[in-house]
Design a protein around this nucleic acid. Structure first.
Lengths: 364, 364
DNA sequence: CTGAAAGCGCTTACAG
DNA sequence: CTGAAAGCGCTTACAG
């Protein structure tokens, strides 16, 4: 510590940082002019703007996000907090794919995703409060929506940009995007009914989540409408539970002739149980899934599934959240009405051999 | 816009933010004293420190990350950039699990993960440059290590905390954590050899990644040592390619009696092909995987795999990076020697019925 | 269209 | 152990 470098090592970094002051000096203008120029705001002539931009490029200037944030500009970060154990998330195909889709859109707009894992919904709400209090994020995306979710009123009260993934309903006045699960359920049940099934089971995921309840309801309703027997089998979480649920269905007095699973992971696990028990798919029992994946596709027989990818879901969510953030910034506190708009993703059915032997050419 | 709120709406936020100045006023000290107190630094008496902390809590004070960062404190964020398409990432079980593990450790230390998807290694390097230039991150984790990876020298030159996931070798002077792939390969090959296999195939993933090459080498070497026939079959990416590779192996003149796949996704896809072709597992051909997952476990027969979970890998990586960041901060520019230390995760073999019929009780 | 200034909320030497 | 001040790098009214 013999050399003096107090000025450099204090403050923000390595010392040789180039700032708008440097650019201003070179351009013979004030730093305010530089700020206006680089942010594309009116207030400088085209000529000086061009000169300033050129110098900024020459000097390899990078704006300081900290300084910008401190001065009140957006921090270009959106947050997502997950109240589930890491192990569980890691096993969910949905999670990685959804995040990847979010990232793709956010990165393209120079936005970052900030994630945090907590262990309770209370801790999740607390995190939102702190994040917005600290101005750490410009907005948040809320996943794993539940019925009467405590996070919704908390977020409404905070009055900050938030996008709910899930619904419809139970997202209060917040904007939301969701896959139309009722529609997806109809697609699945109708397809099976058309193929002659009269006794269909649904192996359902975690009951706490709203979409699970919605699928349950739609499933039962549709079965009633079509006059076919619908069986509901709860299966908690993941592959293990789905395997158990499938075994239970097999053991019942009158097993179903078709099973719809809540995810590809569950469908695969269930299929393994069927195969092990010598049950032919789809000959004895047909199999379908609410979620598609490469594994569902390469499985033999290929598994009929709802084809809305989680990646696409992530993209739509990110796009919508960015809109909400932009709107909030524009009105700066005044409500605006249209930002609570809800957007639904239309599900599509991908028919494969697990429900239709003709769907998959032998040389596939 | 009739009400005046210029002072409030300018600057950082909603106006009613509580700052260390507010605390200082209430406590009858300067804001400098507050700063020292809340950061646990010496310079204030225990009594005033306690009083300050109490007031901070009462006022519900939250430090401003922007202000801290601008004043030179760590930004409590680590970055990870991925040069792969979102779709590919989304399908990788490894990705989600690894991120979940990272998150778990980082969140506990109040650190955030910042991710970005780019479309080339050059863009990745550029992102590192900008992130550190902007002081957006305190460190980065580098994944998908390649042989002679251009990112390594770039990061070395930047001289900022970085942790390489992968190796050994090819990570230059940077600290690294890796799963010992040579060891994992021995575990797999030896296990198969012990069970009498004399012709083993390896279905390998993307050739560009270092660990693929290392597994190739270790595989060939070990086969030679044990005097058994080793077949290498390249399979590019994911389920589809693995299915094709497996079909090709089946079509060869003398098919192997065992196949080792690079990931659980590939092993599952390959198993589907085997099942479809009427090949008994493990009777005709045994199957093993370098990566475990719930699906590999519930598959029938359960798939023998290397049991080091990606979640755990993420945890170790985060822990190590945090150490490196702390060390860098302590020495403030002076090299320190021990932070380039490399840490290896010891792989474990989980034997299941895909290689050993006795391994899985029928009533599993 | 341009200049000069205040302010965002902290941290960190430097004097007392 | 405590006070007073400078500085981090921006943005945003406000005057000219």
């Amino acid at each position: 510590m013999t050399t003096s470098r107090s000025a450099a090592s204090r403050g923000s970094g390595r010392g040789q940082r180039v700032t708008i002051a440097d650019i201003a000096r070179r351009a013979g203008v004030t730093s305010a002019a530089v700020s206006l120029a680089v942010n594309g705001r009116p207030g400088v002539s085209d000529a000086t703007r061009a000169r300033i931009m050129e110098i900024a490029r020459e000097l390899d200037w990078e704006p300081s996000p900290a300084a910008r944030a401190l001065a009140g500009a957006p921090v270009l970060t959106v947050g997502m907090v997950l109240a589930r154990p890491a192990e569980v998330l890691g096993n969910e195909a949905f999670f990685g794919a959804f995040v990847a889709g979010l990232q793709e859109v956010l990165s393209a707009q120079d936005y970052s995703l900030q994630m945090k894992i907590v262990d309770s919904p209370e801790a999740e709400i607390d995190t939102y409060r702190r994040w917005f209090g600290q101005r750490r994020v410009d907005g948040v995306v809320v996943v794993d929506l539940r019925a009467d979710d405590a996070r919704i009123p908390a977020l409404e009260e905070l009055g900050q940009p938030a996008l709910v993934v899930g619904g419809p309903g139970h997202h209060g006045s917040l904007p939301a995007v969701y896959v139309d699960d009722a529609r997806a359920t109809h697609l699945l049940v109708d397809h099976l009914a058309e193929r002659g099934h009269r006794r269909i089971a649904r192996v359902a995921g975690t009951a706490a989540f709203l979409h699970t309840a919605q699928r349950d309801q739609a499933f039962l309703d549709r079965c009633t409408e079509l006059g076919i027997g619908g069986v509901l089998q709860d299966a908690g979480f993941g592959a293990q539970d789905a395997a158990v649920a499938t075994a239970e269905l097999l053991a019942s007095d009158v097993p179903p002739t078709a099973i719809i699973f809540d995810s590809d992971e569950m469908a695969l696990a269930g299929s393994h149980v069927l195969a092990e028990s010598g049950v032919a798919v789809p000959g004895d029992i047909a199999v379908a899934s609410y979620e598609d994946s490469p594994l569902a596709r390469t499985h033999r027989p290929g598994i009929t599934a709802i084809g809305r990818s989680a990646v696409e879901y992530g993209r739509v969510a990110a796009t919508r959240l960015l809109e909400v953030i932009a709107a909030a910034r524009r009105r700066d506190g005044e409500p605006d009405g249209m930002e609570s708009e809800v957007r639904a993703l239309e599900p599509e059915l991908v028919v494969r051999a697990s429900t239709d032997p003709a769907a998959q050419p032998v040389a596939g």
